[in-house]
Simulated assay, not measured.
Amino acid sequence: MSNLERDPVELLCAADVPTGPVVQVLEYREVPLGGPRAMPVRRTLPQRGRTTIGAWCFADHYGPDDVALTGGMVVPPHPHTGLQTVSWLFEGEIEHRDSAGSHELVRPGSVNLMTAGRGISHSEVSTPGTTRLHGVQLWVALPDASRHVAPFFEHADTTPFAVGDATVRVFVGELAGSATDAASSAVTVFSPLLGAQVDLPAGGVVELALDPAFEHGVLVDLGPVRLEAAGADEATEVAWSELAYLEPGRDRVRLTAVDGPARVVLLGGVPFGEELVMWWNFIGRSHDEVVEFRRRWQSDVIDRNDPDGPFGTVSGYEGRPLPAPELPTVRLKPRR
């Protein structure tokens, strides 16, 4: 998914140092995604004070949206560098095309992971038969040693399994403390990560083992949820679309569905120890590098100077690629 903000903020994402309470609740900001009537998404990462959770560096939560009212998802070809996109749906269907030659449908229960590496472009459009669209779009920052890999795409089905009262689907990485093969995902990652959907019936309770080397995030899709983290003095209630952050050192978390059925997306990873420069759809390591990414995209793809350049061509999409916004007029300064 593209960042379609007209004036995307250029961010220096320093290595976050866990501070403050065991559980920190992060609120979302609403961003119009696009389409004829601008489908809204709720963004919880990145934000001031918390730019990453492990290598997870971007989280958009959307729906359930009536496609007849919002126009659905219509994201023309756009570029990415230095990251992986993870598409995960609860409802609906999205057609994915990319310049590596991939053409796949994103459906509930299956994960689509695209590794941009040194550069890729892709489009995402909800299919004509989709009446409701509901899911999350996530980005993973690639570590410096892997960020120039050749781009590629993976699609994998997941298998639900029971933990306590919950039904769990792991779509990235591995859930700690589980002996079932379904608790790990086959898709490729370049740093230790976890991504999972956890569903609870009304009044249901689950205690999940956590890798204490990881920091974790709990994004509530259906809630509220009462969260009790190991080491915390009291429970925390996390409302719909909020993201609860758990610092490293926690080896378990207990989730309770408070007012009805609940669903959360559990994210985790080893704290990302590298500084990132994030602007629009690019992740680099310096202001000048991001400027060069934008120049190549505008020159090679938008101006058609080299359609076989690093971002390639998205075959099968009828329409123009997405031009990049204008860059900031000042150089990047560290956010304190």
Results as ranks from 00 to 15, higher is better:
M1P: 12
S2V: 10
L4G: 03
D7G: 06
V9Y: 04
L11Y: 12
C13K: 05
A14T: 09
A15R: 12
T19H: 12
G20D: 04
V23A: 03
V23R: 03
V25G: 00
L26I: 13
R29K: 06
G35D: 01
V41L: 00
R42S: 02
L45I: 11
L45D: 12
P46G: 08
Q47P: 00
T51K: 09
T51S: 06
I53Q: 03
W56S: 11
A59E: 01
P64T: 10
V67E: 09
L69W: 03
G71N: 14
G72D: 08
P76L: 13
H78N: 06
H80Q: 10
L83M: 15
T85I: 06
T85L: 07
T85N: 05
F90D: 07
E95M: 13
R97L: 13
D98I: 02
S99I: 06
S99Y: 01
G101E: 10
V106L: 13
V106Y: 05
P108S: 11
S110I: 00
V111G: 02
N112L: 13
L113E: 01
G119A: 07
I120F: 05
V125W: 10
T131S: 14
G135P: 02
V136Q: 11
Q137V: 06
D144V: 14
S146N: 14
H148E: 15
P151G: 11
H155F: 11
D157T: 15
T159S: 14
F161V: 05
T167R: 14
T167M: 12
V168I: 10
R169G: 04
V170I: 09
V170L: 11
F171S: 07
G173C: 12
L175H: 12
G177N: 12
G177H: 03
S178P: 00
A179T: 14
A179N: 09
D181P: 10
A183V: 08
S184W: 03
S184I: 03
A186C: 01
V187S: 07
F190M: 13
P192S: 14
L193H: 06
L194P: 11
L200I: 03
G203V: 02
V206C: 05
V206L: 03
L210T: 04
D211R: 14
D211P: 10
P212R: 13
A213S: 15
E215D: 13
D221G: 14
V225E: 09
V225I: 08
A229V: 15
E234S: 07
E237F: 04
A239W: 04
W240H: 08
A244M: 09
L246E: 13
P248H: 08
V253A: 07
A257E: 04
P261H: 02
R263Q: 02
V264S: 02
V265L: 13
L266K: 02
L267M: 15
G269P: 12
V270W: 00
P271C: 06
P271V: 07
G273T: 06
E275S: 06
L276T: 02
F282V: 12
D288Q: 14
E289P: 02
E292D: 15
R294E: 15
R295H: 07
R295P: 01
R295F: 01
W297V: 03
D300G: 08
V301R: 01
V301F: 01
R304D: 14
G309V: 05
F311D: 03
V314K: 04
S315G: 05
Y317N: 07
E318V: 13
T329S: 12
R331Y: 00
R335L: 14
R335W: 13
